[in-house]
Design a protein around this nucleic acid. Structure first.
Lengths: 196, 196, 196, 196
DNA sequence: GATGAATGAGTTTTCATTCAT
DNA sequence: GATGAATGAAAACTCATTCAT
């Protein structure tokens, strides 16, 4: 067993286990013992690498947002034409509930805490602002390069994100509510109409 | 204090107290003692009128959805012209986070449980389906009376609801994200464009 | 509704309900509410006619012993020949678990409390002593009237009662342990051999 | 105090403490806190080693029956002559209330629950059947080796056990009811008469 | 570093008893 | 007399956190 870099391994091990537990049984019913069991470590070790349970949970959230961000960067950023970039992003947004359903389950689990938990609120706020501002940038990019007209709607980025969030939540709660495939097309059309 | 015929009063008293507690401190940190204290009763009486804590929480959710429904009925249904009806409803949807911020905080608190709690999931699913189907009816009504063209977008009702939900959540988490007033106008335009 | 004699009626109503509850679900799992429900009265009324729950339970025990005693008197005492009297009593003892299985279930429920509950202990002790002394009298009567020889065994009455008690308990716990019919005959022979 | 390998010790510690509590104050009035206090541990640890209170109580019963069985094996089995074996066993049975009064108190505490508690009933049934069948074997052994005649009474083993049980209970409830010394002799004679 | 036994404060729930009506 | 709503103390049980090994 390597001793060096063990810390990073253990932390990742615990965070991933906690994430899985939250998705499987909900934050509400999650004990430190559950996490330790899922991670294959003792409860004690969790307190060696994390301040306390809350610390673990906050890191799960941050990590989850970071991964989501990384994934967007990896799939959207390589694309160069600004128009395609936005289209790809919208596609991503639309695929998210299917491609990464865990993300929405996790998000829902934390959103409920946001209003009564300062730290959670802050992290979630930052995430939403980042997403909105990223969409703003994508649109601005298109406008700058004359691919889009000035977008015709005020607050379009917020609406795009809200649509993605709302549809994601709705589909997470009720898989039969709509067909994500067709919804994807509608979404592209709707938004496309506003920027060309 | 009368002792007879208090059942309805007590139940309402407890449910309202529980609702308030959830909004104030979150379901996660909510004890029966808290509810009893907020309701001004003993913990014992809660078990006299409700099966257990879960029973109370589920009733808070149902009651909250019922009130929300009643309010829509009271404000939207009196309006007769189908076009105005839909507009009014959209307005309602848009005002909701401001007019009734508690509703969204409450909703968020329960959404997190939905995936790991059968009963919650069912109630939330029903609610969403009802809302979507209500919007469908409003649009169909307009089309039938030749006020709207057939709506141009597939899944428009789902998108309208998703927008309302997404914006509501975003605004609940981050009051500074956008100005609801202006957002209201954008929303009306966006949707208006799709049904006339 | 008659007002006079209501007290006796109510008391009997409650005691009988409590007895039934104990037999059905055990003293351990018996609440005052259960008793009230079974008796078709309110919990309050129980405290009007009895000092407290313990008072009810003690009266159930006494009443049960009294009835058992009355039944013996009614079936055994009318018989005049001392020999037949004892035979009849033994028969009674043997039939008890079948004829009145509730009695044994009840008895077992209280025997467990006897060692840690002064009042119960006293009542049970009195009952056992009475039963033993009744058998002593029956035998003495037979000897006095020259129907039996002096009984050949020391402590015969105690042994007879112990056999009845032991077999009753065993059969109550395990109906398949033996056939009470055949056991009855064996018992009569066994005891008969010792007093003639 | 060592922390490792304490499982067996702690379990025994808790079971023994629970047994003591039951004997001292009765199952009816026994809280987990009492057990923890008597065992000198925290309440939490009890739930670490046992599923719940019921689990502890059932193990107390099983353990008690096991010890009783072990003791019989240790005292009766070394004896080889079948006749002496049975005599020794009867002696044991007779001495039990004196030698091990706790056993009867405990037994009484559980017998009351048997009828309304499936698991208790099963354990007690098994115990009684084992005891009866052990006596059957002892007699059969004697008959096989021509030490006893075929026993003259049908159901003799059941009667022997019932006598032991009945006398034990009676003497537990009322120490003054008879002299166990003399009772022992009577018992031996009585039974001896039936198998020689 | 790693373990998991141990703690005890806190949570849900029950229930005998009281008392206003 | 009669009711059953209301209380609150006590019970069973959970779980984050600590710490001896």
């Amino acid at each position: 067993m390597p001793k060096l870099g063990m810390e990073a391994v253990r932390r990742e091990q615990v965070i991933e286990a906690a994430r899985k537990c939250i998705v499987d049984k909900g934050v509400a019913n999650l004990s430190v013992k559950d996490i330790a069991l899922a991670a294959g470590v003792s409860t004690g070790i969790i307190y060696h690498y994390f301040k306390n349970k809350e610390d673990v949970l906050l890191r799960v959230l941050r990590e989850s947002f970071r991964k989501s961000y990384d994934q967007v960067m990896a799939t959207v950023e390589p694309i160069k034409p600004p128009g395609d970039k936005l289209v790809k992003y919208i596609e991503n947004l639309n695929q998210a509930p299917q491609d990464n359903p865990d993300f929405f389950v996790l998000l829902l689990n934390y959103l409920g805490q946001a209003k009564s938990h300062e730290a959670v609120n802050e992290i979630v706020q930052d995430f939403i602002r980042n997403v909105v501002s990223y969409v703003e940038d994508l649109i601005a990019l298109g406008v700058a390069e004359d691919v889009f007209d000035q977008d015709k709607a005020d607050h379009l980025p917020e609406m795009i994100v809200a649509l993605g969030l709302g549809l994601g939540i709705m589909w997470t709660i009720d898989l039969d509510l709509f067909d994500p495939e067709r919804m994807g097309k509608n979404l592209s059309e709707l938004i496309g109409g506003y920027i060309t």
